[in-house]
Design a protein around this nucleic acid. Structure first.
Ligand SMILES: Nc1ncnc2c1ncn2[C@@H]1O[C@H](COP(=O)(O)OP(=O)(O)OP(=O)(O)O)[C@@H](O)[C@H]1O
Length: 753
DNA sequence: TCTTGCCTCGTTTTT
DNA sequence: CGAGGCAAGA
């Protein structure tokens, strides 16, 4: 049975049941690689081709813009472009923005993280709150978190009892006020404001609820309360809502994701049908066994089975280098072997996954040395560069003169004689007459109100410049307009005058921006507003999209969600790094790290290699890390090569500590029986690297500070320095030989948790 | 008003 | 180690 290029035989029976299931709530709960995304995609196609549903009556939410693009492409293949492009597919943010742009009658700006932080700082200063006492990151974290919970400043204030919360409440109020005045939305606002819009304008709510006959959500385990609420608004309580997800893959709780949304779906939607998918099509048996073993250490999971018809496959490998350079060299060697010696893979088949963006460096160096092309997803984004943000700030002000934050950024960039004194005069006058700063400047240029001649001249020039630029928006094509802005503002000249090496690279980036504008206008939209919106929403993923080239990919575990690669390297498998020390304070943190590990492992199709280092430089000095506990949670029999210490026999341990350390230690998978593991794991491990059992993650008690958890470790022997997070007294650094820390019961690395 | 140099602090993870 | 913030001098 075929329907326009889509064959039902590409689905197994439960997948097919989910695709063909009728109206009403549907939950597809399934493990990694079981075809959840495929189900969503085909269900959309099926609804259109078999139920004659209008494409615009379907809204599908994905986790990244890239995932949205892929889903749309697949549907394009099945049903053609005309239909595919009418479907509403996108991230929460993109879809909400689309609604807001349509319903809000004025131009507004979207603030990215950096801009929100700057605005917060401004609020903090105005309120005379000590920036040391309450850090901007903390502030941002709390306010952003509140938005995830759909808590506005008023509600927040009501629950704010302690001193800090009351401070936060004050900032939250002012921050929102400034956002409104600047006609700006931050990321969280995009969704929360859409929810509010629907609440305040029932007829609007009805319009969208009626338009979308079917609502589908991918990665449902990672949505927060606000997103949950919006989906409920769209779908209604009995609605045609399809959600798919895997509770073991929830890795965004730091961003407000709430597992209860998926765990309690059946309670929220009592008529819900639940379909489980149990066959994994992605990975070998060895890889699945490893993934299952790791995540099995978490409690409170929904019961799930996952099996595969795929072959046993290669054993896993583990390598521990002495330094990052050694680790990276090993990884590159393995890539070279598979790709060039054995010719069994292409570079695009290989991915290097790490916990933090900062870890990419040594791998980049090693890859460059061997002239292997690579791409990095995440980290510093192109649009985060200073020169790009400066020009974007000009563009934002041109589109939305109320955006004072952006104005602040560029009013004196390049330096044009408008300093802090002048700016505060302008601001004062603007607020007195209730106008924008730009309008106030135009007035002051005329009558000079309290400005020195020099300042007045500068203000006049700037005011004229901005008016001139504004009047020419949309007269030429976008790329040419950008070039005009860059030149006429003096920005180009500023970098041309700069020292050659720095200036050249800035100018090159500006050229890239012009190119991006050109490409954007080719997609059919030639508006400046459209261009800015698109940039506001691009994630790290969308930039790196030069998939046609054959190159190795580097990214964080988080960015890898939903993807698959034949050969996966999980690097930096060390306590303190993965699991990350900041996540070790409570069980939830550790459980989420473990899920992240599960996500990482299950990205692999054929071959999985785990690596780590014994020492690593951090903040300029070297630290000593022990092996990640996750390594020890994988059964030893699955490994080949160097074996994680806890899985080694006494002889192997001795070898690994001496001569063999850092070299690849060849042991075939079957020389290591399970017996060995079980027998030795308990007594070999504890005395290896952990003086007195003081390991990261260990709970300890201290005579003065009471109980806490070891979160960091530096040096050895006499110099062993520990960082301990105390329950009552915060973080402290101390020398182990003086601290007299007593390990208390609770978790210890060797036994797992 | 602008530039320089010193100091502090920090690294999870992202739409 | 490196980025960003801040204070002092030009
Ligand atoms: N019925 C099937 N027959 C063959 N291959 C399938 C089938 N269903 C899915 N696959 C393949 O299995 C792999 C995983 O599919 P998909 O990405 O949809 O899974 P997923 O459950 O969304 O994974 P994850 O939870 O890791 O995001 C893909 O390569 C897909 O093409």
């Amino acid at each position: 049975m075929t329907a326009k290029g889509f064959s039902i035989s590409e689905l197994n029976p439960p997948q097919r049941e989910a695709v063909e299931y009728g109206p009403g709530p549907l939950l597809v709960l399934a493990g990694a690689g079981s075809g959840k995304t495929r189900v969503i995609t085909y269900r959309i196609a099926h609804l259109i081709s078999h139920h004659n549903l209008a494409p615009a009556a379907i809204i599908a939410v994905t986790f990244t813009n890239k995932a949205a693009g892929e889903m749309r492409d697949r549907i394009k293949q099945i049903l053609g472009n005309v239909i595919a492009k009418q479907i509403w597919i996108g991230t929460f943010h993109a879809l909400c923005l689309r609604i807001l742009k349509k319903e809000i009658p004025y131009e507004f700006t979207i603030y990215d993280e950096e801009e929100s932080k700057r605005l917060l700082k401004e609020c903090q200063r105005e309120l005379n709150i000590d920036e040391k006492q309450l850090k901007v990151v903390q502030l941002g974290y709390r306010i952003e978190g509140s938005k995830h919970e759909l808590i506005g400043p008023d509600e927040y204030e009501k629950t704010a009892v302690d001193f800090t919360s009351r401070q936060v409440a004050k900032v939250y109020h002012l921050y929102q006020k400034k956002l409104v005045r600047n006609k700006a939305y931050d990321f969280g606002d995009l969704i929360m404001s859409t929810v509010r819009l629907f609440q305040e304008q029932p007829e609007l709510h009805k319009k969208y609820r009626d338009q979308f006959k079917y609502v589908l959500v991918d990665e449902y385990q990672d949505i927060n309360h606000c997103q949950y609420f919006w989906i409920r608004q769209l779908a209604g309580e009995q609605g045609n809502l399809t959600v798919v997800g895997d509770d073991d893959q929830s890795i965004y709780q730091f961003r407000g994701a709430d597992l209860r949304n998926i765990l309690e779906f059946e309670r929220d939607y009592p008529k819900a049908k639940v379909i489980k998918l149990e066959q994994n099509y992605r990975s070998t048996q060895n890889i699945l066994a490893a993934a299952g073993a790791v995540v099995g250490n978490n409690s409170g999971r929904k019961a799930k089975t996952l099996w595969t018809e795929n072959e046993t496959g290669l054993p896993l490998q583990y390598f521990r280098g002495e330094t990052e350079a050694e680790e990276a060299a090993f990884v590159v060697r393995e890539i070279l072997q598979d790709v060039y010696d054995k010719n069994i893979r292409r570079l695009t088949d290989c991915v290097i996954l790490y916990r933090t963006n900062a870890q990419s460096r040594p791998f980049e160096d090693a890859l460059r040395r061997e002239r292997i092309p690579y791409r990095i997803v995440g980290g510093m984004k192109f649009y985060d560069r200073m020169e790009i943000k400066d020009i974007l700030a000009y563009l934002k002000v041109i589109m939305n003169p109320a955006d004072e934050l952006s104005l602040d950024r560029i009013v004196n960039t390049p330096p044009r004689g408008i300093g802090a004194g002048t700016i505060s005069k302008v601001r004062k006058i603007a607020s007195e007459q209730g106008s924008t700063m730009l309008e106030a400047m135009a007035g002051m240029a005329q009558d000079g109100q309290g400005l020195t001649d020099r300042a007045r001249q500068a203000v006049t020039a700037f005011s004229n410049l901005m008016q001139g630029l504004k009047s020419r928006v949309s007269q030429t094509d976008l790329a040419r307009y950008l070039a005009t802005v860059i030149t006429e503002t003096g920005y180009l000249a500023m970098w041309q005058k700069a020292p050659h090496d720095e200036g050249a690279s800035r100018l090159e980036n500006l050229n890239e921006l012009i190119k991006a504008a050109d490409e954007f206008s080719r997609t059919g939209d030639n508006t400046l507003g459209g261009f800015l919106e698109q940039i506001a929403l691009v994630s790290s993923w969308d930039e790196a999209d030069s998939k046609d080239n054959d190159q190795v990919t580097l990214m964080t575990f988080h960015s890898a969600k939903g993807l698959e690669f034949p050969l996966v390297f999980m690097v930096g498998m060390e306590e303190g790094l993965f699991p990350h020390s900041n996540a070790l304070q409570d069980e939830h943190g550790l459980a989420e790290e473990r899920r992240l590990c599960y996500v990482g492992i299950t990205r692999a199709r054929e071959r999985l290699i785990l690596t780590g280092t014994a020492t690593r430089s951090s903040f300029g000095n070297r630290i000593y890390n022990s092996e990640s506990r996750f390594l020890h949670e994988i059964p030893g029999r699955l490994f080949m090569g160097q074996i994680p210490l806890c899985h080694q026999t006494a002889q192997q341990t001795a070898d690994a500590r001496g001569l063999w350390r850092g070299k690849q230690y060849q042991v075939s998978a079957d020389t290591l029986s399970n017996e060995h593991n079980e027998h030795f794991s308990e007594d070999v491990c504890p005395d290896l690297d952990d003086e007195l059992g003081l390991v990261v993650g260990q709970r300890v008690s201290h005579a003065k500070y009471g109980s806490g958890t070891i979160v960091g470790k530096q040096g050895v022997g006499e110099d062993l320095k520990l960082e301990v997070a105390f329950t009552r007294h915060g973080r402290k650094q101390m020398l182990a030989r003086f601290a007299a820390l007593q390990p208390t019961s609770g978790k210890s690395r060797a036994k797992g948790v």
